[in-house]
Amino acid sequence: MISLIAALAVDRVIGMENAMPWNLPADLAWFKRNTLNKPVIMGRHTWESIGRPLPGRKNIILSSQPGTDDRVTWVKSVDEAIAACGDVPEIMVIGGGRVYEQFLPKAQKLYLTHIDAEVEGDTHFPDYEPDDWESVFSEFHDADAQNSHSYCFEILERR
């Protein structure tokens, strides 16, 4: 099963200049909980913004210009990325925008964090048809001392 995991502000903004323009430790914990011990696929820009392999996960970098870091697996196509994951129950696609666009048609599940923030962004989550998805989990949280904005975790499964 292919799943996408993303944090989205208003207007589906997911990033600005290779960074997330908010401070939500709870979302980072949600991300870790849902990706640990699963292969993660990301684009080169996302890889560069993280700066290191995510521990406890097979890191697969999709790029037309593969790098030389041998701590991760470099691939040039969506099919190659899927094959590099091996026989696993769930593959997690973690961004960025172009990689989400490439995998959305193949995805069966979306793990979304909806952030109540209007922020400037240069990267967006692809538009998706809500009628194609069923919400199977939703959990709202107010902003607090650690988390700069209110947010809602949601899991959607393709109908």
Rank of each mutant, 00 (worst) to 15 (best):
M16Y: 01
I60C: 10
V78S: 12
T123P: 00
I41R: 02
K76S: 12
R44A: 13
V78K: 12
D11A: 14
F125H: 00
M42V: 00
D122Q: 01
H45L: 05
Q146V: 08
C85Q: 03
V119N: 12
N37D: 07
E17H: 02
R12F: 04
R33F: 13
V99M: 08
S150Q: 04
S148P: 00
D127G: 13
K109H: 11
A29P: 00
I60P: 04
W47P: 02
A19E: 04
E134K: 10
H45T: 15
V10P: 15
E80C: 07
K76F: 14
G97I: 00
I155G: 00
V136S: 10
D132P: 10
D116F: 15
D79R: 11
S63P: 02
L36T: 09
F153I: 06
P105Q: 11
R52Y: 07
E129H: 10
K109P: 05
S77H: 14
E101P: 02
P53A: 14
P21E: 01
S63W: 04
I82L: 08
V88K: 07
P25S: 07
E134T: 07
V136L: 09
Y100A: 03
G15A: 01
G56A: 10
E90F: 02
I155K: 05
M20V: 00
P21F: 00
N37P: 02
V72H: 07
M42W: 00
I60V: 14
I155R: 04
I5L: 03
R52D: 11
V72L: 13
T68S: 13
P21T: 03
G67T: 15
I41L: 10
P21M: 02
E120K: 12
N23G: 14
L54Q: 01
K38C: 12
I155W: 02
L8E: 04
M20C: 01
V88C: 15
H149K: 04
L156E: 00
E80K: 08
C152A: 10
C85T: 08
H141R: 06
P39I: 06
G67M: 15
D127M: 14
A117Q: 10
T68C: 15
G56M: 08
D127N: 11
E129G: 15
V72N: 08
K38A: 05
I60H: 03
D116T: 13
P25Q: 03
R44S: 15
A19G: 15
V75T: 12
L24V: 15
H141K: 05
T68D: 15
E129Y: 13
K76I: 15
